[in-house]
Design a protein around this nucleic acid. Structure first.
Ligand SMILES: [Mn+2]
Ligand SMILES: [Mn+2]
Ligand SMILES: [Zn+2]
Ligand SMILES: [Zn+2]
Lengths: 137, 137
DNA sequence: TTCTTTATTTGTAATCTTTACAATTTAACA
DNA sequence: TGTTAAATTGTAAAGATTACAAATAAAGAA
């Protein structure tokens, strides 16, 4: 059940703790780009002794080791994504949902050829999602 | 001296206040993508009665009316940019500078053809800037 | 110019997110 | 089973942003 997450932690020589496993499982099963508070509130139900600081510490570590990625699209809070493969995000200003956008640009490699060392690429699109557009009519 | 900013406010039927003019001038002359606090601390020197709430209110209004744009690259704070033309940003994780990146993607129009209504496009690159790379050696 | 209306500015307090830190607990390994 | 370093926890502090009501000022009419 947790083997997959356990393996990811061991590969990076990170200690395997129940908290880290639960956080990884939550992110894997909830691909909605949740905030620390969302993760914390939900995991606390079955793990009442969980500390919010642990969630902060864990997602920071998992992010640093590239097991998950962080999303800063809203500006007010950091969101987390189990999927660390390169993909992009759309924020609906009406419903607040953050939707995955899979596009690639043929210029991508050219862009990375500038004089700076580029480690991360994030594309953020903002507008109104198709669901909200339909409801509007 | 302030004619340019005055014109931008009038075009959008926004009231012309000394605070808004000073904020626009500051952003025009400091293309470093400053935070609200940076704008506030610097303008306060010559306008001691300025309130930080006014800076928050003003940049929010200017952003809503597309006179400036907001940048959420760091996740911890919102930064503001006088240049509202589409261009992108690089964050140096070493020195913290946010540098303009001017690239365009030939796929851009295709990307915008998805089922969602896309109003804003932000590309954020993160890594180490060329200055910091040189210093490292 | 003066008056009136309405929006803006101001200061304070409250909220929300994140970080600091020290004590306690626990994972990993001998 | 014991040792050690790292993770977890709870509390407090910091930092960014928002809420709100009173004071002020911009814009347009008279
Ligand atoms: Mn995603
Ligand atoms: Mn810029
Ligand atoms: Zn929506
Ligand atoms: Zn740098």
């Amino acid at each position: 059940m947790f083997e997959k997450y356990l393996k990811q932690l061991k590969e990076k020589n990170l200690k395997v703790t129940p908290q880290r496993l639960e956080i990884l499982k939550y992110l894997d099963e909830h691909r909605t780009h949740p905030t620390v508070d969302e993760i914390y509130q939900n995991l606390k139900k079955n793990n009442p002794s969980l500390s919010k600081t642990t969630v902060y510490n864990s997602v920071e570590t998992l992010d640093q080791y590239n097991i998950i990625q962080s999303i800063t699209i809203t500006g007010n809070e950091i969101r987390y994504d189990f999927n660390r493969e390169m993909h992009h995000h759309f924020l609906c200003k009406t419903c607040g949902e953050i939707i995955d956008i899979d596009v690639t640009c043929p210029m991508q490699d050219n862009m990375l050829n500038c004089k700076h060392q580029i480690d991360e690429v994030h594309w953020y699109f903002k507008g109104i999602c198709k669901n909200c557009l339909e409801k509007e009519r």
